[in-house]
């Protein structure tokens, strides 16, 4: 029972940041038809900038809880500045090109951005545990649970709900949904597609950076850690269905739980269980579990 609970909480915590990152990835794919490998770089940049800012704030005398403000700041800076710059210079020139070529281009971009991190932040790892000290632990079922991790679950829930509401309840969200459904028709309807693309890309970049910024206080932020998350996020969105928000949620939960279970109970399969599930989903439901509806063209 305790074990089950531990797996559940561990899995949820893991799923929550995977969901935030995957949400950005899947929305960008759904709208722009770009599988953005550089998303992993937004994540890494978010983490680095956040860890750096927390360190700075801390030396300025900000309280441990107060340093948490670095998380949204880092996410916004990375998303708005780096995300915009990349959309304007590179992504914009990729629209409509061969999907695989786009993946390769964003992969190139990812590699470049990863190394620029090293040039900017150096090769030494960053530690920024302050926010985790500020969060009180909670007793659930007699087990001590890390308060910061629980806050992450809440935040990801809120973000998921906000995204859902924006897409389903606002005019702008309906434009986006129309483009996901049929972008040619959207153009014909007079929707300013390039503008929507730009906004969605930047929003996705903010989400990617937020995932990184939120996880930063719980780990040592070191070179090359954006790689694992991008590959896992791919698994999440492929399992859930490229372009689907509920899919990203289910995919993240599935991957999070599987990993938590594997880590605690069956370490031999930890490294590949996610990929095995991804392969199985692709084989039996090639479009993923929750592929969004698309206009059928013959």
């Amino acid at each position: 029972m305790n074990l089950l609970l531990t797996i559940l909480v561990e899995g949820l915590g893991y799923a929550s940041y995977l969901f935030i990152v995957s949400l950005g990835l899947t929305v960008i794919f759904g709208v722009l038809k770009i599988l953005n490998v550089a998303h992993g770089a937004f994540y890494a940049w978010g983490a680095y900038l956040c860890a750096f800012l927390i360190g700075e704030f801390s030396t300025m005398g900000v309280s441990d809880l107060g340093t948490m403000v670095a998380i949204p700041i880092a996410a916004l800076i990375v998303g708005l500045i780096l995300g915009s710059a990349i959309e304007r210079t590179i992504i914009k020139n990729l629209y409509g090109r061969d999907e695989v070529l786009i993946v390769l281009a964003t992969f190139g971009l990812f590699l470049v951005l990863e190394d620029v991190i090293l040039l900017v932040f150096g090769v030494d790892p960053y530690f920024a545990y302050q926010p985790t000290y500020a969060m009180p632990g909670v007793q659930i079922g007699g087990i001590h649970q890390d308060g910061y991790k629980l806050s992450m679950i809440v935040v990801s829930l809120v973000i998921g709900l906000i995204s859902w509401a924006v897409l389903n309840r606002t005019h702008w969200g309906k434009l986006v949904t129309a483009i996901i459904y049929d972008s040619e028709l959207a153009v014909a309807m007079g929707i300013n597609v390039p503008r929507v693309f730009y906004t969605v890309f930047v929003a996705g970049a903010v989400l990617g950076a937020l995932g990184g910024a939120y996880i930063a206080p719980t780990i040592s932020v070191a070179p090359g850690f954006g790689v694992e998350v991008i590959v896992l996020s791919f698994a999440v969105v492929v399992i859930g269905g490229l372009g689907s928000i509920p899919g990203a949620a289910i995919g993240a939960l599935l991957v999070g739980m599987l990993r938590a279970y594997a880590v605690l109970q069956w370490p031999e399969i930890e490294l590949f269980v996610v990929y095995a599930v991804m392969a199985a989903v692709l084989i039996f439901r090639p479009e993923g579990l929750f592929a969004p509806a698309k206009a059928r063209k013959i």
Binding site: A235, I269, E270, L271, F272, Y275, M278, A279
Partner: peptide, 8 residues
């Protein structure tokens, strides 16, 4: 996915 299974 297949290659990562072998890797794992």
């Amino acid at each position: 996915a297949f290659s990562m299974v072998l890797f794992g």
